[in-house]
């Protein structure tokens, strides 16, 4: 019994589409709720190669909606990319899964796009990273699928370079304030619907069904029974710095993002170190000085007074319990300076 038989029976995919899926490579940026859902659908569908990038680790409050994670992953505080890979490889051992525990920068997305990449899935929680995906999409001619949701409300749109407007055409001014799952909450079905829209579009692109790609932005509120497809064609802007006639790809060319960033909607500051941590040494040193450290091969975490501090191997530090970069820096200096 062929494991993909129910999918090859679907005539727009068929045996030919299944073969294209097996040869495809998809980048999923973010392994939160949208990343989990998209990764699982595409892995089950038999996409040949999937790369997942995420900067965070599994927390108990993720389990309400992030479908690749179990209680054990939160207990161990595994990085999401790693926990996702563990589960995905048990689901489909035929898929090659590559993971990166990092916060995407222009340099890194450039490197990734220099490989063959057939589609990128937006599963981020912030507009800064979306603009990075958008500009890379235009620069390297790779389609991407935008998705976002909070509460019971969600949006999705497919961006095909040279054809549709890009994300910057639609939203030339980033909101100074926007809702995230951490500020407004979110329910599982809103995620499920956004994921379904995103994964369907990815399957269309990967199986060469470009005529089926949705030429509109899907907007829904699943609690209030509202649903619209809003045509986007008119917004294509010839002067757009990402996809217009004179392109500067602002998100790709700007200076590396500031070394410190408040994580959107969370009471957390991320500091970027200049070099990787030697986690084993650091953990044993901190244990000897009486700290209660929890660590795994990817990160070390500890409680310092009212702050939870997480050190990642790649040199990043999360300081939970503050939104104040200066305070976060001073805490970091005090203990690790």
């Amino acid at each position: 019994m062929d494991r993909y038989s129910r999918q090859t029976l679907f005539s727009p995919i068929g045996e030919q589409g299944q073969k294209l899926l097996r040869e495809a490579h998809v980048l999923i940026v973010g392994a939160g709720a949208l990343g989990c859902g998209n990764a699982e659908m595409l892995v089950r569908a038999g996409v040949g190669k999937i790369t997942i990038v995420d900067r965070d680790y599994v927390d108990w409050s993720n389990l309400q909606r992030q479908q690749l994670y179990e209680e054990r992953d939160a207990e161990q505080g595994l990085p999401k990319a790693i926990a996702a890979r563990n589960r995905l490889s048990r689901i489909n051992s035929e898929v090659e899964i590559t993971t990166h525990v990092l916060d995407l920068t222009p340099d890194e997305i450039n490197t990734m796009c220099e490989q063959r990449l057939d589609v990128m899935i937006d599963a981020t929680d912030n507009f800064e990273t979306r603009l990075l995906i958008n500009d890379a999409s235009q620069a390297y001619n790779i389609p991407w699928v935008f998705g976002s949701c909070t509460g019971s409300y969600g949006l999705s749109m497919t961006i095909i370079p040279g054809q549709t407007p890009c994300f910057r055409c639609l939203l030339p001014h980033l909101p100074s304030y926007s809702l995230t799952c951490d500020t407004a909450g979110v329910i599982g079905p809103a995620i499920g619907m956004t994921v379904s829209y995103q994964a369907a579009e990815a399957l269309k692109i990967l199986t060469g069904n470009m005529q089926a790609v949705r030429p509109s932005l899907a907007l829904f509120d699943i609690w209030n029974n509202e649903h619209m497809f809003l045509r986007v064609g008119k917004r294509k802007n010839k002067k757009c710095p990402s996809c217009g006639e004179e392109r500067t790809y602002p998100a790709l060319t700007e200076e590396d993002r500031s070394k410190a960033a408040v994580l959107c909607g969370r009471d957390t500051v991320q500091l970027r170190g200049t070099k990787p941590f030697e986690l084993e040494k650091l953990a044993s040193h901190l244990k000897r000085s009486g700290h209660n450290i929890q660590s795994n091969p990817y990160l070390a975490m500890m409680q310092l007074e009212r702050h939870r501090i997480v050190l990642f191997r790649d040199g990043r530090v999360l300081i939970h319990g503050t939104k104040d970069v200066t305070e976060a820096r001073s805490i970091y200096q005090r203990y690790f300076g």
């Binding site: 939160g32 599963a123 976002s148 926007s178 809702l179 407004a184």
Partner: peptide, 10 residues
Amino acid sequence: VALIPPVSGG
């Protein structure tokens, strides 16, 4: 007319 606030959650 629809006023569509972009949300960043994901």
